[in-house]
Simulated scan of single mutants.
Amino acid sequence: MKRALILFFLPLILAQVVFSQEKIVDYAHLKCQYQHTYLKDTLDVGTYNDLFILQIGKNISKWYSYYTFQMDSLRRTPDGKQVWQEMFNKSLEVLKNSGDRTKWMNSFPHNGSRTFVYKNNPSGKMTVTDGIGNDHLIYQDTLNAQHWQIADSMKTILGYECQKAECDFRGRHWTAWFSPDIPVSDGPWKLGGLPGLILEAYDVGKQYHFWMVGLEAVTREPIVFSEFSLSKGKFREIDRRELLKLEMNQLTNMGAIMEAETGVPSGNNKPVYRDLIERDYK
């Protein structure tokens, strides 16, 4: 069922000045917005949330967290660092008084995922940038590495008829719902390669879940290669599996890291039962 591609897309605050300071790699004709949840702990029902943007151009697409983009844009304003610090200091009072870490995280602008995915950049591959602490990392990955099995099941998402597909990818079994009516072979995160745009994807148990909440046709919106946080130096090249091992170490020691950064005792020395979205680092 074909229709106009403009749906209820949430407004974004775009810092246009950023585009003049970054390398433009393509121009988007379609912008997608995905909600993302992932389990805090496989023994608990609590989840983390993020909001992602997928810009799709003629040759290249870009996947990034809106919250991270918003945070970096704030920091690049003349008084952004001061404004953020004042809001952060006030939020610490919220944490000290309530002990509610979720309420604390929602009380000031904060980073989401630091992962940026550029598909078909360079041609036939994808470039991924990420960050751990003050380290800014980059690697190339295989484009459309999933081997999908398309099923007959159908369901409607945002008014589009979507077909089911499944695959095993780097330690997780994924289910995706794609729409042939949107003839773009792309989707959330590193997922793609189907004969239509992926509107929803999740692994077994929905430990990681992406679903589209907005879709908008745009006209020549710049797709930039982002270096928002690189005040010094350049990205350091790294092997993908090495980066995953570093991320797992950070996840395992998250309580101690947050305590060191905020000065607030985490009070959480429980073992970590959450795994990464890619499990093939083991």
Rank of each mutant, 00 (worst) to 15 (best):
R279S: 07
G159N: 09
L54Y: 00
I157M: 00
E93R: 07
I238C: 03
M71K: 11
L10E: 13
W189P: 03
M248Q: 14
W104M: 10
A15I: 03
W63A: 05
D141G: 14
R220W: 00
I56P: 02
Q163T: 14
S231A: 03
F225M: 08
L39K: 15
F235D: 02
D141C: 07
D100H: 04
S153E: 08
M126D: 06
M154I: 15
N59E: 14
S266A: 05
N249V: 09
Y48C: 05
L244V: 01
L191T: 01
K103S: 10
A145I: 00
M212N: 10
E161G: 13
R101G: 01
G99L: 05
Y64G: 14
F69N: 03
D72A: 12
W104S: 08
C167L: 02
I53A: 02
T47Q: 07
R220I: 02
I132T: 09
S229W: 02
N249P: 04
L30V: 06
I157C: 01
R240D: 03
K282Q: 12
Y281A: 11
D186Q: 11
M248H: 14
H173D: 08
K270V: 04
N253D: 10
V224H: 12
F88K: 11
E261N: 11
V218Y: 09
L12A: 09
Y64F: 15
I257N: 10
G263S: 11
I238W: 00
N269E: 02
K234W: 04
N249G: 13
M248D: 10
K155L: 09
D79V: 06
W211Q: 03
A151K: 15
T47W: 00
S65R: 04
K232A: 14
N249S: 15
M1H: 10
L215T: 08
Y66H: 13
F228Y: 10
E221V: 02
G192H: 04
I238L: 04
A201P: 04
Q163Y: 11
L276R: 05
L5I: 12
I60W: 14
R236C: 08
M248N: 14
H147C: 05
E247R: 15
E200I: 07
R172V: 04
L12T: 13
G133Y: 03
P183R: 11
K119S: 07
N59F: 04
N121Q: 10
P265T: 06
M154T: 15
T219H: 12
N89T: 06
T219P: 00
D44N: 07
S266M: 02
R240P: 01
C32T: 09
M71C: 06
L5N: 12
V128E: 06
D79K: 11
Y118V: 03
Y34L: 11
T102Q: 11
E216S: 10
